[in-house]
């Protein structure tokens, strides 16, 4: 009797492991960030791009509506791909777009913008990459949709924007 119980429990446990591993295969290894704690401390200073002035990020966020924060760099190839989406969003005139220029050279950044257009309302610099870590960024490009009033991140987009994320932003802005 007890032998049967042993057998059954071992078989059940093995089956359980089997299905877990089978499901595990579907999961990707690439970290898809669930926003853990979506409040970011916006109370830090950063230097504007193309000027020596410094500003608190807080001051860049209006008191209502949403803002888009986009981390970019001139040396980042996917940033070129997503640039059209940003220009498109700008033309909607529904939200302010704040650029964070990540570990970049000012000259190159300037050239990048004059070549492709400037969608940003404001651009601040992040020469050491530490401001981006405050947002929980992994690298470039990344984009965050922020609720100005509550100062919470509504949505994170890791990697370049695409049709899907663009539609999502439009949807959330409306």
């Amino acid at each position: 009797m007890s032998k049967n119980i042993k057998l059954i429990s071992i078989v059940l446990f093995t089956l359980f492991s089997f299905f877990i591993l089978l499901k595990g295969l579907d999961k990707s290894n690439i970290y898809s960030p669930e926003i853990k704690e979506n409040n970011v401390n916006f109370n830090f200073k950063a230097k504007y791009l193309f000027s020596e002035e410094e500003v608190f990020i807080n001051e860049l966020l209006n008191n209502e509506g949403v803002s888009l924060i986009n981390i970019w760099a001139s040396w980042c190839l996917p940033c070129r791909d997503e640039h059209a989406y940003l220009l498109n969003l700008k033309s909607l005139n529904k939200l302010s777009i704040i650029g964070i220029n990540y570990k970049d050279d000012e000259k190159n950044a300037k050239q990048f913008l004059s070549e492709l257009g400037n969608p940003y309302t404001n651009i601040i610099t992040d020469p050491k990459g530490i401001n981006s870590i405050e947002f929980g960024a992994f690298g470039v490009p990344e984009t965050y949709l922020i609720d100005n009033k509550s100062k919470l991140i509504i949505q994170k987009f890791i990697g370049p924007l695409d049709d899907k994320s663009f539609a999502k932003i439009i949807n959330l802005v409306q």
């Binding site: 570990k103 050491k128 990459g129 530490i130 981006s132 870590i133 992994f138 690298g139």
Partner: peptide, 12 residues
């Protein structure tokens, strides 16, 4: 890049 920035953040 990520790791280098992270080290600076930790130092800060």
């Amino acid at each position: 890049d990520f790791a280098l920035s992270m080290k600076i953040v930790i130092q800060n």
